[in-house]
């Protein structure tokens, strides 16, 4: 389990990184935390000609509130996100979701940007950021552009990022941030890939009626699934067992996950419905509590 030969570059600045990507991006690969990629490399499941190590791009390691957004630098370690008081205050669902990513040790190396670009179908960050309606800044030597996450994930491990591009920042809109939130995940063991994960944001008025909601599910498709039509069913209503059942069924109605070792298609869809129900209930409870305390 030793990797095939590769050239190694370690830029000290974003500009240098972009230059390297322009030249080597086609047959090369970026290396951030390496928690997903190094095993793939060692097992020779991927044999890039060059590795561009961006771990030293300190300019991409930050968490800040600016212009109505929570802005996170791509090379920010997941553990930093998890422990950030700012994030806990402004976007608590991110803290909750991040605690499910692997283990403490892997979160100390894994990066926020890395997780987004790696686009594992069950990953927590892509799912949660999608629910938060986040967008990303993407740079290359020639241009800088923004992309909303709803169009960003194409399929397994594939985003619309091009070989010569670098994801530099993730922005989460803070206006209209929901009061209620919940992240639910089911995995075989603590720290394993989620079989199914659900992120939910919910707002509730003084009488307990749902006024808005966003929900996304990971693990039932090649990319996280944003459930818009289904969540509309909740608007103007109070929660009930049957309503939650209907919402769950609507979310998964077009999903066709494959059977795998740990979950059959039927079981996975069942898990999705169970977690959707639990996430909505938890988010609702938190929204009510937060509303009461305001």
């Amino acid at each position: 389990m030793k990797p095939a030969t590769f050239d190694y570059y370690r830029p000290d600045s974003v500009v240098e990184a972009l230059q390297l990507l322009e030249e080597y991006g086609d047959e090369g690969k970026l290396l951030a935390g390496g928690q997903s990629f190094i095993p793939i490399l060692n097992m020779r499941m991927s044999e890039p000609e060059s590795l561009i190590d961006i771990n030293h791009l300190k300019e991409l390691d930050y968490i800040k509130e600016e212009d109505g957004y929570l802005k996170i630098g791509a090379v920010t370690r997941q553990s930093k996100l998890e422990k950030s008081p700012l994030v806990k205050k402004l976007v608590p669902i991110l803290v909750e979701a991040t605690s499910f990513i692997g283990h403490i040790q892997t979160r100390n190396r894994g990066t926020v940007g890395g997780s987004v670009v790696h686009a594992d179908p069950s990953a927590e960050l892509p799912l949660t950021l999608l629910t938060l309606d986040a967008k990303v800044t993407i740079k290359s030597m020639d241009e800088e552009r923004e992309a909303n996450l709803r169009d960003f994930f194409i399929t397994y491990l594939t985003t619309e990022i091009m070989p010569s591009e670098l994801l530099t920042e993730i922005q989460i809109p803070l206006q209209h941030m929901s009061n209620g939130y919940a992240f639910e995940e089911f995995s075989r063991r603590h720290g394993d890939f989620a079989l199914v994960a659900v992120a939910c944001l919910l707002d509730v008025d003084e009488v307990g009626t749902v006024t808005s909601g966003r929900l996304a599910v990971g693990g039932i498709d090649a990319v996280p699934v944003l459930a818009e039509d289904a969540m509309d069913l909740l608007i103007g209503k109070k929660l009930s067992e049957s309503l939650l059942q209907t919402v769950g069924e609507k979310v998964v109605e077009d999903a066709e996950p494959d059977d795998d070792l740990h979950a059959s298609k039927e079981y996975r869809l069942n898990l999705a419905k169970v977690l959707i129900k639990r996430a909505i209930q938890k988010a609702y409870g938190r929204a009510v509590k937060r509303g009461d305390s305001l």
């Binding site: 397994y156 090649a222 494959d258 795998d260 070792l261």
Partner: peptide, 17 residues
């Protein structure tokens, strides 16, 4: 081979793709 023993999580979906 290796693909089957390591990739089973995504194999079905990737094949479809």
């Amino acid at each position: 081979g290796k693909v089957a023993s390591i990739g089973q999580r995504m194999l079905g979906g990737v094949a479809k793709l």
